[in-house]
């Protein structure tokens, strides 16, 4: 029995080695042919377009599906990949950095043409990005940035400017209360601690409201971008502070949770407590059109088409700008009511 086990192990080992070898050969064969194509192409066909759309493989590692925004983002990328005919290797990191690093490593092993990902957190990416660079695979950051000092590790960062979103939110509030004679108490529901949108939306907001001495953030706590946490934290805020005038939530889901807490406290969201939120997902826009959210700063998740354009440019060897900002607008309650029927997500 024991002997058989050992034999079996040996057999398995040999088999796996053979297969690994085969895979290795296969891959080198592939790269060789693509390499040939790349060198031959300029001579034969017109410059640039060396790869057919169906030959381009994009590895994309998503943060997770933590919010409606994220789901819309995922859908946009999947749809536009289908439209352009690229092969999309999609991986969901379930909000864990280690999953994302694993996914990127597997993309490197699979020798995809371009790797795109939305980093779960800002820091700790240097090693894996270096591996991608060494393998000669260009990396595109989408939606969230990394704090890496070496900007040569990635080609470009496509996404919203979160600081600007924070500023827009702060600006609206500043305008609303520019004639205020007494203190306006603001509570803030932060996103996941340490994430780029949470840090930047807080920073941009603080930067603008600093100019008005009456605007004061009296409490700020993380709601992890989720409804349940948003509700729980808001309920505690309502108990701890009797005179909250404004709520600034870093995303719609937390604002929606907080609205339930405010209603449970017998107050009217949007009137007794003004609510500012970021994202503009469907449920959030719905609440805004009902007057429960006063102001929403849009954070556009439809990155798909722009991402595919970048992928094409990168594969063609064209230069890509180091920072590409998505187009975004803002909505007041009235504007939300008008825009709601035509929103794609």
């Amino acid at each position: 029995m024991k002997r058989f086990g050992r034999m079996g192990a040996m057999f398995a080992l040999t088999l796996s080695m053979v297969m690994l070898g085969a895979c290795g050969n296969n891959n080198t064969g592939n790269t060789a042919t693509t390499g040939n194509q790349a060198t031959e192409a300029p001579a034969v066909a017109n410059a640039g377009n060396t790869k057919e759309a169906k030959d381009i493989t994009l590895g994309f590692s998503q943060v997770g599906a933590e919010s409606g925004w994220r789901s819309a983002n995922t859908k946009s990328i999947q749809d536009s990949a289908k439209e352009t005919g690229y092969t999309l290797k999609f991986s969901d990191a379930q909000q864990k950095q280690e999953n994302q690093i694993k996914a990127i490593r597997s993309f490197i092993q699979q020798k995809v043409d371009v790797i795109a990902f939305s980093p779960v957190v800002e820091s700790g990416w240097d090693t894996v990005l270096k591996e991608a660079k060494d393998a000669g695979i260009p990396v595109v950051l989408t939606d969230r940035a990394v704090d890496s000092k070496d900007t040569s590790l990635y080609i470009t960062f496509l996404g919203s400017d979160f600081v600007e979103e924070g500023r827009k939110a702060g600006q609206w509030l500043s305008d609303q209360y520019k004639d205020a004679s007494e203190d306006i108490n603001i509570v803030e529901l932060q996103g996941t601690t340490g994430s780029a949108p949470a840090n930047d939306r807080m920073e941009g907001f603080a930067e603008v409201i600093k100019t008005n001495p009456h605007l004061k953030v009296i409490a700020s706590q993380t709601g992890d971008f989720t409804r349940a946490k948003g509700k729980e934290v808001m309920q505690a805020f309502l108990k701890a502070h009797k005179d909250i005038d404004v709520l600034y939530a870093h995303n719609d889901d937390m604002a929606l949770g907080a609205i339930q807490a405010i209603e449970a406290a017998g107050l009217k969201p949007g009137e007794d407590i003004k609510i500012i939120s970021v994202d503009a997902v469907k449920d959030g826009m719905q609440a805004a059109s009902e007057g429960k959210i006063n102001f929403i700063v849009e954070c556009n998740p439809m990155l798909g088409p722009q991402l595919m354009e970048i992928v094409q440019n990168v594969v063609d060897g064209k230069s890509v700008e180091a920072r590409i900002v998505t187009e975004e607008s803002t909505f007041t309650s009235e504007q939300a009511k008008e825009a709601l029927p035509s929103r794609p997500y």
């Binding site: 601690t193 340490g194 700020s220 706590q221 993380t222 729980e232 934290v233 805020f237 108990k239 701890a240």
Partner: peptide
């Protein structure tokens, strides 16, 4: 709930 009420910064919660 106590941590939320006394305003412990989220980083050290």
């Amino acid at each position: 709930t106590t941590i939320y009420m006394i305003g412990v910064p989220p980083e050290i919660t």
